[in-house]
């Protein structure tokens, strides 16, 4: 990235634009530095790093860190556990959000606005507020140290954002479409499944990427609800392995990257949805 590129892309050279471009490029480099650092460290041996060679470009491709991480059976367990939580919890919260979102958008009733706001407000509270009672609840149910509490909690904690987004999306489906379907003999359920949902695929894409990412990245709930190693999720495992590979910085780097891989992939492919979801959730909340 340099000036020549900037001016080449523009019909006429504009000093302001060039200055802005340089500014942004510098900031972008600063912003990228941490991520690049991890990437570099994951490609180097611990000795290299300790000798202060972290910030030099790797001369040869050193992949042992990744090999070590990928061969670790614990990592496989963490990955599997996280998937086993993230997939059903994402699906579950979206399904529930679809139901409530439909009612709030298309079947409003006296007081539904207040109820809607109350649910949406739920997304802003720090989870610490319900930590202890949930701990007690799952302890009482004998579900501590299983994956179930995380699934349940993520479904429940996903309801506000899913309700918000689905309601906002369903609100854009014209009322006349629902009415036309009703006149044709459709029930509300059929209006939802045959008309509203097929039109809401973008919203579903937004929500799935958002929910999956959040659940994948979550740390607090498994920290509270799990104990044994074979129930850990990837983020919890990451912290745990940090102790195990305490000075093996390269391995830690590789670990971080691999743990972030699913969300990075989601980000790369669904960036548009991701950003839309973030701003939509934020702007109307």
């Amino acid at each position: 990235m340099n000036d020549r590129l900037a001016s080449a892309a523009m019909p006429s050279f504009n000093p302001w634009q060039a200055a802005i471009f340089v500014c942004l490029a510098v900031l972008a480099l600063l912003f990228l530095a941490p991520t690049i650092g991890v990437l570099l460290s994951s490609l180097k041996t611990t000795e290299d790093i300790a000798l202060g060679k972290l910030w030099s470009f790797p001369t040869s491709l050193y992949l042992d860190n990744f090999r070590t991480v990928l061969a670790d059976p614990a990592i496989h367990t963490y990955f599997l556990n996280t998937l086993l939580i993230a997939v059903p919890a994402t699906a579950g919260s979206i399904v529930l959000g679809i139901l409530s979102g439909y009612v709030f958008a298309k079947l409003p009733f006296r007081g539904s606005d207040v109820l809607f706001l109350a649910i949406v407000a739920g997304m802003f509270f720090p989870p610490q507020v319900i930590l202890i009672p949930l701990f007690r609840l799952f302890n009482g149910l004998g579900l501590l140290d299983t994956l179930w509490p995380m699934i349940f909690v993520h479904i429940a904690m996903g309801i506000p954002i899913c309700t918000l987004m689905m309601r906002n999306f369903f609100a854009t489906v014209p009322a006349a479409l629902r009415e036309a379907a009703i006149i044709e003999g459709a029930s509300e359920w059929q209006v939802l499944t045959k008309v509203a949902l097929p039109l809401s695929l973008p919203a579903l894409a937004v929500l799935s990427t958002l929910q999956f990412t959040w659940i994948w990245n979550d740390f607090l709930w498994p920290l509270i609800f799990t104990q044994s190693d074979d129930k850990r999720t990837i983020m919890l495992g990451l912290v745990f392995l940090q102790g195990q590979y305490s000075v093996a910085w390269g391995i830690q780097g590789a670990l971080s990257l691999i743990a972030s891989l699913p969300t990075l992939i989601v980000f790369l492919f669904f960036q548009r949805y991701f950003i839309k979801g973030m701003t939509m959730g934020a702007v109307k909340g």
Binding site: P174, A176, L177, E179, A180, A181, I182, I183, E184, G185, A186, V195
Partner: peptide, 16 residues
């Protein structure tokens, strides 16, 4: 509505 024996054409067409 569906059992009244009516059909309706909307201003916005209301096509799916």
């Amino acid at each position: 509505p569906a059992r009244r024996g009516i059909a309706m054409v909307f201003q916005s067409y209301a096509l799916f």
